Amino acid sequence: MELELTAPVGELTRCLVDVPSVSGDEAALADAVQYALTGIPGLRVDRDGDAVVARTSLGLPSRVVLAGHLDTVPLADNLPARLDGGRLYGCGTSDMKAGVAIALRLAATLPLTDPGALRHDITWICYDNEEVTAARNGLRRLAERHREWLDGDLAILMEPTAGEIEAGCQGTLRVVVTLSGTRAHSARSWLGDNAIHKAGEVLRRLADYQPRSVTLDGCTYREGLSAVRVEGGVAGNVIPDECRVTVNFRFAPDRTGDGAIAHVREVLSGYDVAVTDLAGGAPPGLAAPAAAAFVAATGRTPVAKYGWTDVARFAELGIPALNYGPGDPNLAHTRDEYVELAAIDAGERLLRDYLS
């Protein structure tokens, strides 16, 4: 497929959405992005796996990174995209192909060979496997293999924020609590020890848990500790000897990953708790000069990011990062996901004014 990056940004969004790119299957879209960027004067284009990176080299005193993931969650009978009034419906419209479309159109329409026309050198990063476990994340792979490709004074993650600036992000931790019992025939239940029944106390502790709210740089982060999956049972006539409860902890960025693990173990003390996934959060970082300049230029009041995003990965590298994109985060991953065309247009105008 060939992408026309100079098309109106809503039309470009639709083209991106109509290329299925569920996590792990981004190659076709990455091919199209790479091909389209390679033809733009003033850009060096590199690729690693299904991540594509393009950079200007004008020698300007600062560099801004525009980053967005190409992958989506699994389809829910919501392709191809459809237009209804001022809304574009389809998988990935909000999270986050509208944001990627803005970034790509800017690459094709900004004067990238004229150092007097831009305020910053610019890096574009379109990467894979953001919607799955951290170990597969394409930006993580780039940081390990090509650290210099990610360098910048400010990274803007084109995550859906409804056109607001969302600073930092929560950390996320998943653990599995395993309850053990003794298997028996359900007709003689007194001979067994029901592992599923033992999960009741774990669920009670989670239901009674009082989460913190933490304010950093004027942004308030709310924590949450929740059971997200319960597995157990052998057959309809068997007392189960094992039950597993998966618990997700979304924690404020003032906690370290180790601190989050210790907290969950304390809440669930006395139980077998195994960590299965961990990604640390990111503080707002609004005091960094480049972040403060972006906030001032946009006139927005930053708020906390609920959820984990790759601003955390940039923060680990010492690069200030913010979330900004046209999609509504409440629509992400839903069957009826959509984006307002007016919001995409507004996002393009704001970033064009900031960069040029």
Rank of each mutant, 00 (worst) to 15 (best):
L112Y: 00
Y324Q: 05
G24L: 08
A155V: 02
R183C: 09
N137K: 05
A292C: 09
A282Y: 00
M158V: 13
L88S: 03
V273T: 08
A135M: 10
R265D: 12
V275N: 10
A167K: 01
V17A: 13
I125M: 10
D50Y: 08
D217F: 00
V247T: 06
R140K: 01
A346Q: 12
D25S: 15
L268M: 13
S213V: 12
C15P: 00
I196D: 01
A207Q: 10
A54I: 14
G90T: 03
P329H: 11
G116C: 08
S186K: 02
A199T: 12
I125F: 08
A332Y: 02
W149A: 04
V175D: 02
L286N: 12
V176E: 14
H120I: 02
E316A: 15
A135C: 11
V132G: 11
I165W: 02
P320T: 09
L66K: 07
S186Q: 09
V33G: 13
G224H: 05
P320K: 02
A321M: 03
D241Y: 03
A187P: 03
V17T: 13
S62Y: 07
L351F: 12
I261L: 08
T276L: 09
G138A: 06
C243H: 04
N129T: 13
T309E: 08
N330Y: 13
W124R: 03
C169G: 04
A134R: 05
G163L: 02
R87P: 10
L286C: 15
D50I: 09
G236A: 02
G325W: 05
R145Q: 11
D48P: 02
P326I: 13
E131A: 01
P74V: 01
I239N: 00
V53F: 10
T113Y: 08
A346F: 07
P211K: 04
V100Y: 00
C219A: 15
C219G: 05
L286D: 06
A135L: 15
P115A: 03
A134S: 14
P320I: 06
S213L: 10
E164C: 14
T113R: 05
A207K: 07
Q34V: 07
P20D: 10
C91W: 00
L203N: 02
E2V: 10
G68P: 04
L173C: 06
V175K: 00
D25M: 12
G86D: 15
T109L: 03
I239T: 07
K198V: 01
T301V: 15
P111Q: 00
G307H: 09
L12G: 08
E166K: 13
N323E: 11
A252K: 06
T182H: 11
R174V: 06
L106V: 01
G318E: 06
D46E: 14
A260K: 07
V52M: 03
V65Q: 01
E130A: 02
S21I: 05
L206K: 00
G257V: 11
G327Q: 06
G257D: 09
L350H: 13
R119L: 07
P160L: 03
R14G: 15
W308K: 06
E337D: 05
T178D: 03
G259F: 11
G327S: 14
H120P: 04
L118I: 08
V267M: 07
C126F: 14
A184M: 05
R352K: 14
E348P: 06
P111V: 01
I40K: 04
L203H: 00
P289W: 02
D114M: 14
A296S: 15
P253H: 07
H69P: 14
R229Q: 13
A27F: 10
E340R: 15
R244D: 11
R204I: 08
N129R: 13
